[in-house]
């Protein structure tokens, strides 16, 4: 399997304080991984370490083919982080914030409008200052910025927090769509039901280390279905097969399950 994240006893330190005390984990291309753990266990630090925001002290850490011991900057061009904070400028409007992002990453101007419509931001709202937005609207703006970057790895820190039911469905839909396009996602979340539904596996983080791994595709969960924006449904059967279907055209894509390996290379798109 093509490994996107490969950590072996990776220790990350800020000053003299060890934020992560020896992480061993691997994430393959196209996987959606749920990071579990109590507050302060190190989930956010792990996401920040993966994207190269925290220097590595020892161990092996390779992300998207970049060895973080040698270079922790190149990975930032290919990975996107949605943090607790929204990374937005309060005094600028939604559109101005997204235009700044679009120009940084040298994307066509029309991408801004497309991404805004994908997350449900209309033209009128786009002119509103970020400081006047609700938490959910801020999150949608951050999601639009995430989409503009067109990264191949998403690191989502509590993506469902502070978002209404429509927003949560939107986020799950974006994650599912991202996987369809070959993207990989690591998501720290306390929203277990939602996270379990969209994720392939989980890592439990405790005391700054990964202490447990659970494979959601082994059929130990009950079947469930999630409504996606646009009328599609995202389902996971009891044997761990994920599928995306729409009322009109039936099953659009199938992932994983006990019967075969997972990943976009093995995705059966109808």
């Amino acid at each position: 399997m093509d490994l996107i994240v490969d950590f072996q006893n990776a220790v990350f330190v800020t000053g003299n304080f060890p934020l992560l005390t020896g992480v061993t984990m691997s994430v393959g291309r196209g996987e959606i991984v749920h990071l579990k753990g109590a507050n302060g266990s190190g989930k956010t630090s792990l996401l920040r370490a993966i994207v190269g925001l925290i220097p590595i002290a020892s161990g092996k850490a390779v992300v998207l083919g970049h060895d973080l011991n040698m270079d922790r900057f190149s990975v930032r061009e290919e990975a996107a982080l949605l943090g607790h904070k929204t990374f937005l400028y309060d005094d600028l409007s939604i559109y101005e914030n997204l235009r700044f992002v679009q120009r940084i990453f040298r994307k066509p101007k029309k991408v801004v409008g497309l991404c805004m419509s994908q997350v449900g931001i209309g033209e009128k709202l786009a002119k509103t200052k970020v400081s006047h937005l609700s938490a959910g609207q801020r999150k949608r703006t951050s999601l639009a910025a995430l989409l503009i970057k067109e990264a191949s790895l998403w690191l989502l820190d509590e993506p469902h927090a502070g978002v209404d039911e429509d927003g949560r469905a939107l986020i799950d839909g974006l994650i599912t769509d991202f996987r369809l396009r070959g993207g990989t996602v690591l998501m720290a979340s306390h929203e277990l039901e939602r996270a379990v539904l969209v994720s392939d596996k989980s890592f439990t983080v405790s005391g700054g280390a990964v202490t447990d791994e659970e494979n959601y595709k082994l059929g130990n969960k009950t079947a469930s279905t999630l409504s996606l924006p646009g009328g599609d449904f995202y389902s996971r059967s009891a044997n761990g097969v994920f599928s995306v279907s729409s009322p009109g055209s039936g099953v659009k894509a199938v992932f994983g399950g006990q019967t075969g390996p997972t990943g976009t290379g093995n995705t059966d798109v109808a």
Partner: peptide, 17 residues
């Protein structure tokens, strides 16, 4: 202060500017 408002400083670091 404008870079620290909503951790926009991290966004600059991640921007590869």
């Amino acid at each position: 202060a404008i870079e620290n408002q909503d951790q926009a400083r991290d966004a600059l670091r991640l921007s590869a500017l």
